[in-house]
């Protein structure tokens, strides 16, 4: 359980985080979204005890992080931005170092290292110096390091940055798998990632919390949510579509010829549209329901404060 109250952090005159308030409970997979420089990393650094807040308080498992930094750090796994590591060490040496600092000895230590190497699929790079690894592998070593002590809280700053699509998929699977009874907070600026792994989205910009709800609610904010887009093989009269019940607006994109029908709030118009298409014998070759365009919502939300 994480409880953040009136959290602020400023560097000189620049205020990076302003008055954040939120609670996170076990089972939550929080996606931290925001433009670059929004204060995501700063917030994470404060949650992990790396930075002290200027104002406000952070309580984790009913302990204040200011007083119980070490106790809390023992229960957190953290992947800092850019996945820093000691380049001159091999993957195995590095994981062993982390395991030892985390207090594991002997068989238990070896077992944990083996498990995490297997889980993150690092077998091929176990004895290679980290500085010689590819960006993707470096990120995975960073992830392995954060998981070695099976933490209650996992804080990952851009965990999929620099990974190829397969690795991204793999990391997302891993996160969902791990998240059963843990708290997971990931920051990202990849919007699909949020709908793919998170069950809660927080958007911050300019240090302020702008949105805090489920990914579905975020999609629902888009005017494209549940809109129907069709494409016709050849020109036909589509004026009737705009008149359908529940359709609020129709837009034709000149370049692609896609016709998008926006529903009135809360309406489902697919049935009406398909019925009309059949009635008017429209030459439809593509028809799909929009899920909501997150990039649009993101832009609207984050530029409001700019």
């Amino acid at each position: 359980m994480i409880s953040v109250k009136n959290l602020s952090k400023s560097f000189g005159h620049f205020s990076a985080v302003e008055d954040l308030n939120f609670d996170v409970k076990p089972g939550d997979i929080v996606g931290f979204l925001g433009p670059n420089g929004a204060g995501k990393s700063t917030t994470m650094k404060m949650l992990t005890g790396f930075l002290q807040p200027t104002h406000g308080s952070i309580e984790i498992f009913d302990m204040s992080i200011a007083q119980h930094t070490k106790d809390i750090q023992e229960r957190i796994g953290y992947l800092p931005e850019g996945a820093p590591a000691y380049g001159d060490m091999t993957t195995y040496q590095f994981l062993k170092f982390i395991a030892e600092v985390r207090g594991f000895r002997g068989k238990d230590k070896e077992q944990r290292i083996r498990n995490v190497i297997e889980k993150i699929e690092l077998q091929d790079v176990v004895n290679r110096p980290i500085e010689n690894l590819s960006k993707g592998f470096k990120r995975r070593v960073g992830l392995a390091q954060a998981l070695i002590h099976d933490p209650d809280i996992l804080i990952l700053d851009e965990p999929t940055d620099g990974l190829d699509p397969n690795q991204k998929h793999q990391v997302r699977e891993l996160i969902t798998q791990l998240a059963q009874d843990k708290i997971v907070i990931i920051s990202t600026h990849i919007l699909e990632e949020v709908t793919a792994v998170c069950n809660r989205v927080m958007i911050i910009a300019k240090g302020k919390l702008l949105f805090d709800d489920t990914p579905l609610r975020l999609q629902q904010r888009s005017r494209y949510y549940q809109a129907v887009t069709i494409h016709l093989s050849y020109l036909a009269d589509i004026s009737g579509l705009a008149e359908l019940e529940g359709v609020a607006e129709m837009e034709v994109e000149q370049k692609t010829g896609h016709v998008t029908l926006f529903p009135e709030p809360g309406q489902h118009i697919l049935h009406e549209v398909t019925a009309h298409v059949q009635r008017a014998k429209l030459p439809v070759d593509t028809l799909f329901i929009e899920q909501g365009r997150l990039d649009q919502v993101f832009r609207d939300l984050t530029t409001e404060v700019a």
Binding site: F50, Q73, E74, A85
Partner: peptide
């Protein structure tokens, strides 16, 4: 290298 962030968030 930024590894200080890793080091200082270890217990």
């Amino acid at each position: 290298s930024g590894s200080i962030e890793l080091l200082m968030t270890l217990p």
